[in-house]
Design a protein around this nucleic acid. Structure first.
Lengths: 212, 212
DNA sequence: TAGATTGTTAATCGATTAACAATC
DNA sequence: TAGATTGTTAATCGATTAACAATC
């Protein structure tokens, strides 16, 4: 259906465009040129136009872009014009933090279940949900329509849980486990590796030291 | 001091190499060729050799790489051969989760303070620390040697806090606030934008739908 | 020595930037 | 119409992959 496969580099910039356009809207700004946006975002106007034209012709020559129209287009492109049901696997610190964080449901990402294997956690109330035994995950996925699973468990269990997810037709995994998941082609994974991130930061700090 | 600036693409791969080498060590494997590692990591052997040779000649022709030696080299390159003192600004869900997560201190990233502006949170015990009034942040940074600040606060306050950090000589910011921080050249920022990440995931899901 | 595998140069591929005709 | 700014092609830049001489 799509003409050309969009590169991940372009995709990763879309949420940032979306955020800046949202800010412009909040400030009552109704039109913007690639040149002005370029100055705000510190990327080239050329790149902005190239990126947007991967998805359509949203601007008007001599005028620029209608902020609201562009905002809505990017929203649609990102798939934010619908709701997603999500479950959290692993009710540790991170799983709980995600469950309690209200900003996801504002965007249409709704948590409908949270699971753990620890008997001390099962039954606990977290973000308006009760922690369920991970042993019931299989049955739960079978009964409920779940779009995305959040994996916030130690890496030792990640592969086994992933096969349960895949078996039940889960198409998206938001992976916080420190492991590279292998999934079929029709299951997409987005990784958040916080340990990798802090290591990248310490690299940058070392580089700073060395360049002095 | 460095010859050529290493690109961020290469740097971002280093923690992944480090993780795979750690796994090999755990499994008692003492040597590995770029070809074998290539199969495990699903990247080309050529890229592995190119990446590593940006930092030095760690292999031996006809033999491969000594796992432990390479592991230690990457550890050093990433700046993981020292300790970092960190403070958390924002004792919300995420700030608390990070404070409680034990894996960072195992790697040398030690939390020595956590701050919030909410009177209900101040005084609370989180991860063996007591939440302090963010009003005391300035004085705290002045008295203590802090390497990295974790910003887990709403974006509205992020800029103001950042200037306090910069003023006190903080060189590294691990930014969870959904805003692009502007800092001087000698202050490095590593962003973790969870909202962007989940949007990237929903894009991937939409793409999957459209390609059917 | 023969086989294996690196380090490194060269070739290719892809992404970013520049340029400009089209057009509002 | 004149000025502004897009959409898009062409040029450049950088990153990845291929190839192979060096050498363990």
């Amino acid at each position: 259906m799509e003409e050309d496969k969009i590169s991940i580099a372009v995709v990763k910039r879309l949420p940032r465009y979306y955020r800046y356009l949202g800010d412009l809207l909040d400030n009552g700004i109704t039109r913007i040129s690639s040149g002005e946006l370029s100055k705000k975002m510190h990327i080239t106007a050329s790149q902005i136009r190239q990126d947007l034209n991967k998805f359509g012709r949203f601007g008007q020559r001599g005028y620029g872009y209608d902020v609201e129209l562009l905002y809505e287009e990017i929203k649609r492109i990102l798939g934010l014009d619908r709701q997603y049901n999500m479950v959290i696997i692993g009710a540790g610190n991170l799983g709980q933090a995600l469950a309690n964080y209200g900003n996801f449901s504002r965007r249409g990402f709704n948590f409908i279940g949270i699971f753990d294997k620890d008997p001390n956690k099962i039954g606990m109330e977290v973000g308006n949900m009760r922690v369920q035994d991970v042993g019931e995950l299989d049955a739960f996925l079978n009964k409920n329509s779940v779009d995305i699973a959040v994996l916030s468990i130690p890496k030792t269990n990640a592969s086994q849980i992933t096969s349960i997810l895949v078996k039940n037709g889960i198409r998206g995994i938001w992976n916080y486990s420190h492991i590279d998941l292998r999934t079929p082609d029709d299951v997409v994974v987005e990784n958040v590796h916080l340990t990798d991130s802090v290591m990248t930061l310490s690299y940058k700090l070392s580089e700073l030291e060395n360049s002095k």
